[in-house]
Simulated assay, not measured.
Amino acid sequence: MKILYLGPTEGTAIQRIMALRRLGHDVTVVDPHLGRSVPLIPERLIDAWCFRTGAIGIEWLVARYVAKQIGNATFDVAFVDHGDLLNASCIAHLKTIAKVVVNYNQDNPYVPRDKGRWRVFLTALPLYDLIATHRVTSANSAARAGAKRVLLTREAADEAVHRPIELSSEDLARFSSKVAFVGTWMPERGPIMLRLIERGVPLRIYGPRWQKAPEYEQLRSHVVLGELKGDDYVKAIRGASIAIGLLSKGNEDLHTTRSFEIPAIGTLFCAERTSDHLEMYKDGEEAVFFDTVDECADLCLSLLKHPDRIKEIADAGLKRVHKNGDFNEKLVMKIINGALKG
């Protein structure tokens, strides 16, 4: 099929683009964020403005940019990833050049966490042929907001990126750890990390913004600042005996991409106990789950005394994630086929 992909060209979005291409589709990529430039205004200020206001005064620039990039081309599917900058007139235009227009959004536009960022998306939502989301709460909110059709999915790991790679001696020197958390600082995460350290968990934290944590001075020796991309992200997880997965409370998450990426990389997944996680993995056999930070500490400290048990659970988790099929190729085709069968 001829697919127009509109979304960011970084992060996990790149993985979805490549998944579509691996499946043999002809994919044209347009990044709406490239259409936001305003002379003499720094990019960081534009970012802040779009996040706080939903691109007031800028959305028309994006719509013009997208139309110019598309030109006279037509497509079987327009696949919008997130859609925070695409207004109703832009989606209406897409419907004239594509058989179906779908939206897949990993974030949660229906809660106040991201301030005004989703203003434009919410006005355009009723025009999409299909809205795909991985949260029941988001699916219900999308329906109330006027979505024609809503598809409940799971997030996914990537077939090509997330795999049990072999680490070199240099990799092990850089990434070897007993327990790792890979993720951005959020206000609720600092106290969790600090408590784990206080309990004696040999923790290493990778990710951006941790210097903003009120607990940073106590965490500093455990933190490797900066975002990990590509194989460095995989190596940091692969180099750990146990990798912790945390959820965004503000986003109402019951699982995230880490829920699949960590087991797919071949590392033991230790995460918050939720209905989604319990549906995906057998607790204590294919992953380990906790309700409190002290239970997390107890699990980590106990398991670290039994390396063979860690390997057994990690291997079982790897088999389970592949059995479940929670990978990008299946995800993107579920969304596209769901829209075309509409």
Rank of each mutant, 00 (worst) to 15 (best):
M1T: 07
Y5H: 03
T9H: 11
G11N: 06
I14P: 06
Q15D: 14
Q15L: 15
I17P: 00
M18F: 08
A19I: 02
A19D: 00
L20R: 01
T28Q: 07
V29G: 06
V30H: 13
H33P: 00
G35M: 03
R36L: 13
V38H: 05
L40Y: 12
I46Y: 03
I46R: 07
I46P: 00
D47L: 08
A48K: 07
A55V: 01
L61I: 07
A63S: 14
R64C: 10
V66F: 12
V66A: 11
K68W: 09
I70R: 04
G71C: 11
G71H: 09
G71T: 11
T74D: 07
D76S: 15
F79G: 05
D84W: 08
N87F: 05
S89V: 12
S89H: 11
S89Y: 10
A98P: 14
K99P: 00
N105Y: 10
Y110L: 02
V111P: 00
V111D: 03
D114C: 04
D114E: 14
R119K: 13
R119M: 05
V120C: 10
T123S: 12
L127T: 02
L127P: 01
I131Y: 06
T133C: 05
T133H: 02
H134M: 07
R135P: 09
V136K: 13
A142R: 01
A147L: 03
L151W: 03
R154D: 14
R154N: 12
A157H: 09
H162E: 01
I165M: 07
I165Y: 04
A173Y: 02
S176V: 09
K178M: 04
F181Y: 15
M186H: 13
P187L: 12
G190Q: 09
M193H: 06
L194R: 14
R195N: 12
L196G: 04
E198Q: 15
R199E: 11
P202F: 08
P208H: 12
Q211R: 11
E215W: 10
Y216W: 09
Y216L: 08
L219S: 08
L225K: 00
G226H: 12
L228H: 04
K229P: 00
D231Y: 02
D231P: 00
K235P: 06
A240Y: 02
I244P: 00
L246V: 08
L247G: 01
E252F: 13
L254A: 11
H255T: 08
T256K: 04
F260K: 02
I262E: 01
L268S: 12
R273A: 12
T274M: 13
H277F: 10
H277V: 14
H277C: 12
M280K: 06
A287G: 15
F289V: 05
D294R: 11
A297Q: 03
D298G: 06
L299G: 00
C300W: 07
H306G: 04
P307E: 13
D308I: 02
K311N: 07
E312H: 14
D315G: 01
D315K: 01
D315L: 03
D315R: 03
D315Q: 08
G317D: 00
L318H: 13
L318W: 12
R320L: 09
R320K: 14
V321I: 14
N324C: 05
D326P: 00
D326H: 09
K330H: 11
I336Q: 03
L340M: 15
L340S: 09
